[in-house]
Design a binder for these strands. Structure first.
Lengths: 333, 333
DNA sequence: TCTCAGTCTGTGAACGCTCCCAGATGCTCC
DNA sequence: GGAGCATCTGGGAGCGTTCACAGACTGAGA
């Protein structure tokens, strides 16, 4: 690679000093129109591109943020929702010329790497994904005082880490209400992990609607994976064979529940109605297609990025953002 | 954030000079055991972490690589295969303390951003994903002489950009042969885009087995999306109502084909056998579960990363890697 | 005319690191 | 005992920026 032009070369070509070039580069005040034009021309001629390392060295800003995925390794990304979030984040950040580094935080080694990365000053901000309650990483980040936001609340840290999220509780109410309206009498639920906001709040919404009828016997827990949906459904069927509906807290788990129901000879929705949550891409591929709750994932991602950038720009504290969900009726309920 | 310790502080704490600390940091020769120990201790005491910017400024190495996703925006990530690749890449790179920046290259603006990023020296290497034939970005990268590899060949640049890939052609042969062995007589195919290796080579493999029987009438093209699978299947059915099998070049498109077949009242596999390709997560959720070809995605990703690191480390030219596929029989064929 | 504020420009000093060279020390071998 | 080599250390220079400061120039107002 030929030696790249530096700010010196540009200054020489434009017949001005380094300082003036730097001022043009950073849109500083006090640059005469003539100097400005000369510098612009010299930049174009030389093909100059600023060296971010040199800049970061003095400004202490990096122009990049790191997204931390906290799932255990096998599960990371199993959920297609990640894709939407990542894509959206990259786009929005890109528009501001901020680049996105992705790191995994599935085990202690990973977490240590993340801490070293952030402590090393390589990111201006942190975007937390699927962080579970009690994750030690959160405390570490907090102590470093680096701008951090989460996509979906971090349980127990709602007032510390700003976040954007879908209205999980209300979404669960929407689905549960719908099942009730359809005349279902024995409605069960498969929740997500109880250390995640989606796990907790979707169960709360379910209970809000059913009240005393949401008995222990009708509740099973999964871990968002399809397999866990299958086995949770099997446990429910064994315990309460006469259930006539189940609200599953994610589409992927719902897909698992559908297989179990099919294997058990239950017709969906005739014998058992199934409601999902997410409206992710799997919802349309299941058989029958899944009636589900759409969360505005792209918007959640956009808001998360917006919050982070606001924080990085030093705009003081920011408030969480909750976005509303919508019932999508297909064929499973 | 409290002022971070620098190499000076460590040197002072250890009672040695900057040079010695730097030597310890970089595993240089010629450091006495005593000095080594003192420096190690001082690093631990001060909580020192090297500043990569300062280091990059002099070494011209960044410790990060950029993954470029070349799909148009709407489609990026629709395919669950991306997830596996990204996850694997992050892990393998992380082990070497190399971080992964992800950029989109869906339109010209994006591509320009990528070029600026790379030209600006912010990455040690480039990992190309789903790059289509004739993508101008490839020429630009080539002219910059930055180490670049692709996950899946770049059509027309097979000898320029090293790559790791599954043996698409042989995989397609495996599936086609299987359909023939099952007694299917009129076998159609839905291909991927004909400017991608998967699109081209899976069709070639199909044709290898069927020879003259692979007539134009039995070939339709999709663009990897589920929707395109649906419509391609519809066109095939209209043109050749008596087909009794279809090899679909991706699971996602196969899921689409299944819906169309179901809507048309065809039973799978009784009336029409369906074979997919990828063995991605959707393959298990379809109804019936998809008989498909497994590509060793994680291995492909690992090999891609290995190639890139070898190139970055300057180990001279590297050879493409082709990994073999395997038939997974489920219920759709 | 002088002053003063407002513009505009150039330059030295960081930022935190690696590289390189000069010099010191100790050991082996003749 | 001295030459020669390998081992080890310190410190100056430089990587490409931004920042702060000093100085030069302008024009308005006293």
């Amino acid at each position: 690679m030929a030696k790249r032009p530096t700010i010196h070369d540009v200054a020489a070509a434009a017949g001005v000093s380094r300082g003036t070039v730097s001022r043009v580069l950073n849109d500083d005040r006090y640059v005469s129109p003539a100097a400005h034009a000369a510098v612009r021309r010299a930049i174009a001629e030389t093909g100059y591109i600023v060296n971010r390392n040199a800049r970061s060295l003095v400004t202490q800003r990096t122009g990049s943020v790191v997204m931390v995925l906290s799932e255990p390794h096998e599960k990371v990304f199993e959920d297609p929702n990640y894709s939407t979030t990542i894509r959206t984040a990259i786009r929005r950040l890109g528009e501001r010329d901020v680049s996105l580094v992705i790191m995994l935080a599935g085990d202690d080694g990973d977490r240590e790497r993340v801490v070293r990365y952030v402590r090393g000053g390589h990111a201006d901000g942190v975007l937390l994904m699927s962080t579970h309650a009690g994750d030690p990483l959160v405390d570490e980040l907090e102590s470093m005082r680096i701008p951090a936001v989460a996509c979906g609340a971090v349980i127990g840290k709602e007032n510390v880490i700003p976040y954007a999220a879908a209205d999980d509780r209300e979404g669960a109410r929407q689905m549960t209400r719908y099942l009730v309206e359809q005349g279902r009498r024995k409605i069960a639920t498969i929740t997500g992990p109880m250390d995640t906001p989606g796990g907790i709040q979707r169960l709360e919404g379910f209970a809000d609607v059913l009240g005393r009828k949401a008995s222990r016997k009708l509740i099973e827990h999964g871990d968002w994976t399809q397999l866990s949906g299958e086995s949770a459904m099997a446990r429910l069927l064994e315990r309460t064979p006469d259930l006539d509906a189940v609200f599953v807290a994610s589409d992927l788990m719902a897909a698992g529940a559908l297989s179990t129901l099919r294997a058990a000879g239950r017709r969906v929705p005739d014998d058992v109605a199934v409601g999902g949550f997410d409206d992710s891409s799997v919802a349309a591929t299941t058989h029958p297609p899944l009636t589900t709750i759409r969360q505005p994932l792209a918007e959640v991602a956009e808001e998360t990025v917006r919050l982070l950038l606001a924080l990085v720009d030093g705009g003081g504290p920011v408030d969480p953002v909750i976005l509303s969900t919508r019932l999508i009726v297909r064929e499973s309920a």
